[in-house]
Design a binder for these strands. Structure first.
Length: 587
RNA sequence: GGGGCCGUAGCUCAAUUGGUUAGAGUACCGGACUGUCGAUCCGGGGGUUGCGGGUUCAAGUCCCGUCGGCCUCGCCA
């Protein structure tokens, strides 16, 4: 070992001991005589003092040290007395150097890890090895490690087996775009990287491994977002001989364990559960941020009878008029601000954003004249409006009102500081529709995936009214992020066939795509259910980050590039020849 | 594929309406200093204003294109 202690470890108990530390130089303070160095490793920072009277040569060397040089220092731990530094955990002591060895000089770094003025992210990603030295990233990766360990312990205690599933798998055309890997041996054929271990874990259930989990890497070739990376990690689990309730309460337990350990937060179990339909009505979203209320209100009845043509016609054409009440915001948003909000709502398809300011003389708005006193009174009542409130309305097809108002709700929640950013709010959303109608292709799509079991009482609707069929599926929502998703699976091949029929997947096609699962389902498939949690997002929320890249050691940019390694890259023509691949980029 | 923001010294930023030799802090280099902890003080070097084109007497600034980063809609069974 090149060290006896770490830079975060020494306390007053160690005073008098001779120690050897190794680490990176943060900065030096050179007094010509005395020289100080702040030495950093993963565990902390310790101040080293070099005195020319002790060893002039060593002192000269110490004065030449620069940021990020790697050194080894042997010396005596001494008390700092009245010169202690309260900002450092080790601030009551320092190491009086006897020996200094420079293990490796550093080039002048383009930025100092841990600087308070963060350089732009492009530079930090290019020099990721420097940024990873910062406390900010080291803390995130520690939380990430701790969370993985707690998760493994949790499942282990409940008799789950961690089983690895293939990374080189088979492409299944539904769902996200696959990352493909060409086969050399099978010319012209490709493996696909898993979007999730979904089918394999179901097969494990059929094989009798009735409690499976895995911390699994998943790959989806879709566009990135602040909370989405092309490769990410799921806490994947599946159980046999269970129902929905068993999965929810299991995940409840895991969440409670993690929040208790990592945030010292007690959560009341069971976590609240809400039906998809109710969430869409109240918040316009299936993943509302429930740290604040701000519920949507339907004023369809008033809209229908008022003289405002936009509202009236929307109702007549089967649309809806819904709104929300920004409490006390009337004076916080100027006309220009509201124009900005209108444009914002427009990004979600809303053709306009109606608003009323609530004054002591009643509702003020460019459109107020179209509403009778009675209507205005009713709006006030329905919206729970008080003087100083600002009411917003969107009139459109239901889906547009939901999307626009949900986005507006999130924006207002943030801008009006309706919640404590440190709070963590979890809930389940259940009873998702099994299918959604794809207008473009004139067919039904699986809302979740084609293996979700319908709610028992809705089974007859599969024939009569498929859009009304609810699935035994569930999402865990944390602060407005979808954190987990799962379902009870179909284990009956007849039900599975019915669903494939609805999805317009022919028997041949089903056989072609999922044949190995269908085959397995015919050989004694137990009822089973499961879920998968987004580990990266979970760490992100627990760390209070709003960016998933800060909890991934080597993340990709929005164009899915790794600026550190330069991936993706062109490859040697020989490699392509082996794979029988020709590049054809249209100009 | 669409919308928005951004790109000036190694880094973080500034630069009036388009107008003199593009500045400051920090980092870097040299010097002074024996208790600093964002050390201090003195001095110095450092620029293809992302890249390419255009408008203009004159472009960091305006226009077009392009590259890259971020946010977002679509997409993400």
């Amino acid at each position: 070992m090149l060290r006896t202690q770490t830079c975060g470890e020494l306390r007053t108990d160690h005073v008098g001991q001779s120690v050897t530390l190794a680490g990176w130089v943060i900065r030096g303070r050179d007094h010509g005589g005395l020289a100080f160095i702040d030495l950093r490793d993963r565990y902390g920072i310790t101040q080293i003092v070099f005195n020319p009277d002790r060893d002039a040569k060593m002192h000269e060397l110490a004065r030449s040290l620069r940021a990020e040089d790697v050194i080894q220092v042997t010396g005596e731990v001494v008390l700092r007395d009245d010169r202690e530094n309260e900002k450092l955990a080790t601030g009551k002591i320092e190491v009086r150097a006897h020996e200094l060895k420079v293990l490796n000089k550093s080039k002048t770094p383009p930025f100092e890890p841990g600087t308070s003025e963060l350089p732009n992210e492009e530079l930090r990603l290019t020099y990721r090895f420097l940024d990873l030295r910062s406390e900010r990233l080291q803390e995130a990766l520690k939380v990430r490690h701790r969370l993985s360990k707690l998760t493994r312990d949790f499942f282990d205690q409940q008799e789950f087996l961690e089983i690895e599933t293939p990374i080189l798998g088979r492409s299944t055309p539904e769902g996200a775009r696959d990352y493909l890997v060409p086969s050399r041996v099978h010319e012209g054929s490709f493996y696909a990287l898993p979007q999730s271990p979904q089918i394999y874990k179901q097969i494990l259930m059929i094989s009798g491994y009735d409690r499976y989990y895995q911390i699994a890497r998943c790959f989806r070739d879709e566009d990135l977002r602040a909370d989405r990376q092309p490769e990410f990690t799921q806490i994947d689990l599946e159980m046999a001989f269970v129902d929905q309730e068993d999965i929810l309460s299991l995940v409840d337990g895991l969440i409670a364990t993690l929040l208790k350990d990592l945030r010292n937060k007690e959560v009341k179990l069971p976590l609240p559960r809400y039906a998809y339909h109710d969430m869409m009505e109240k918040y316009g979203s299936d993943k509302p941020d429930l740290r604040f209320a701000l519920e949507l209100v339907d004023i369809g009845e008033i809209a229908q009878s008022c003289d405002f043509a936009v509202f009236k016609k929307t109702i007549e054409s089967g649309g809806r008029v819904r709104g929300l009440n920004a409490k006390g915001a009337a004076n916080k948003y100027s006309r220009k601000d509201i124009d900005g909000l209108t444009e914002f709502a427009g990004e979600y398809g809303a053709k306009g954003l109606a608003f009323f300011k609530v004054t002591d003389e009643g509702l003020h708005s460019p459109i107020a004249k179209f509403f009778s006193d009675e209507d205005k009174q009713k709006i006030m009542e329905d919206m729970g409006a008080e003087v100083g409130d600002l009411l917003f309305f969107v009139a459109d097809q239901c889906a547009v009102t939901s999307a626009a108002l949900a986005a507006l709700r999130n924006r207002l929640g943030k801008e009006l500081e309706l919640y404590d950013p440190d709070e963590i709010n979890c809930c389940w959303v259940t009873h998702f529709p099994l299918l959604s109608y794809n207008e473009e292709d004139q067919r039904w799509d699986a809302e979740h995936h084609p293996f979700c079991q319908p709610v028992e009482e809705d089974l007859p609707l599969l024939q009569s009214d498929p859009g009304k069929v609810r699935a035994q599926s569930y999402d865990l929502i944390m602060n407005g992020h979808e954190l987990a998703s799962g379902s009870v699976r179909v284990h009956d091949q007849n039900v599975q066939q019915t669903i494939f029929d609805l999805l317009d997947i022919s028997a041949e096609e089903a056989e072609e795509r999922f044949g190995f699962l269908l085959q397995a389902l015919r050989y004694g498939a137990p009822p089973h259910a499961g879920a998968a949690l987004g580990l990266d997002r979970l760490v992100m929320i627990l760390c209070g980050n709003d960016n998933i890249r800060d909890v991934v050691a080597f993340p990709k940019t929005q164009k899915a590039a790794d600026l550190l390694s330069g991936a993706p890259s062109e490859v040697d023509p020989h490699q392509l020849r082996d794979l029988r691949i020709k590049i054809d980029i249209p100009q």
